Every structure is written in structure tokens, then in C-alpha cells.
Computed example of a mutant assay.
Amino acid sequence: MAAIVATDMKGFGDREVTITTLAGTDSFTYDASKNPVLILNNVTAGALTVTIDGDGASSVTVPGAGTFDISGGFPTASIPIGAVYAIPLNSIGVRLAGTIAVTGGAGIEASLLEF
């Protein structure tokens, strides 16, 4: 299990971005106040679907629409070989409560940028 380490993007100039090669079941810490973006670079030999799941997220109630089960986490689209996807984590923040597991991405290079 690899922990995806965030790179602080605040301030001026360039910085080295921490890249983590996913092992299959990985984790990161979500801080909504830092506007985090998760970058997934598929350098593997096949298309992969990554699921991002907080173990404390079970359901969400949307006024006028009802209650929805979100316990399965957020599955990405199938990421083709050589493709790079970016996920603004605040857009799926409701799914990131508790301990976060990133699964299905063995071999993908991940970077977590915080703005």
C-alpha cells in the first residue's frame, strides 16, 4: 500500500512534484481547504479504472432528489494506456470521508497537487 504524498503548489516558481506508483490499494489524505487535484498517469500496458473511496462515506441526501448510496466510492472512466486524468477532489469531496482507499490502479503514476 502506497501513500500518495501531496505537493504544495502555493507560492511562486517551480517545485518538484512527488510521484507515487500505485500498488493496487493506496491512500492519501484529503484536505478540502487546499483545493487538491489528483493526477493519474497511466503508464501501464492496459486501460485501468481507478476507484477512490472514503470508508466514512455511505450516503448523501440531495434536497428534492432523495438519498443516494455513495458507499462504492468514485470510479474514474477507464483510463487508456498513455492517458493522464486529473480529478479536482473537491468535486467528489462527499465521497472522501474517513480513510481513503485508491484501488484498481496498480502501476499508474499518481500525483496529488494542493493549491
Results as ranks from 00 to 15, higher is better:
1 M>H: 11
2 A>L: 04
2 A>S: 12
2 A>W: 00
3 A>E: 14
4 I>H: 01
6 A>N: 09
7 T>W: 11
7 T>G: 06
10 K>H: 15
10 K>D: 14
11 G>L: 05
12 F>P: 13
13 G>L: 04
15 R>F: 08
15 R>S: 05
20 T>K: 00
20 T>I: 03
20 T>R: 01
23 A>E: 11
23 A>I: 14
23 A>Y: 14
26 D>Y: 05
27 S>K: 15
29 T>A: 15
33 S>R: 10
34 K>H: 09
34 K>S: 12
34 K>M: 10
35 N>V: 12
36 P>C: 07
37 V>D: 07
38 L>P: 01
43 V>T: 15
43 V>N: 13
50 V>S: 02
50 V>R: 03
51 T>N: 10
52 I>D: 00
54 G>R: 08
55 D>G: 12
56 G>Q: 15
57 A>W: 01
58 S>P: 13
59 S>R: 13
60 V>Q: 08
60 V>K: 09
61 T>R: 09
61 T>C: 12
63 P>D: 09
63 P>G: 08
64 G>Q: 09
66 G>H: 04
66 G>T: 04
66 G>F: 09
68 F>C: 06
69 D>I: 11
69 D>R: 11
72 G>Q: 06
72 G>P: 03
74 F>L: 02
74 F>I: 00
79 I>C: 04
81 I>C: 14
82 G>P: 07
83 A>V: 14
84 V>G: 04
85 Y>N: 01
86 A>C: 11
86 A>Q: 15
86 A>L: 15
87 I>V: 05
92 I>A: 01
94 V>C: 08
94 V>I: 15
95 R>V: 04
96 L>W: 01
96 L>F: 03
97 A>D: 05
100 I>H: 00
101 A>C: 08
101 A>H: 13
101 A>N: 13
103 T>M: 10
104 G>W: 06
104 G>Y: 06
105 G>I: 08
105 G>E: 07
106 A>G: 05
106 A>C: 05
108 I>H: 00
110 A>V: 03
111 S>P: 06
113 L>T: 03
115 F>I: 13
115 F>H: 13
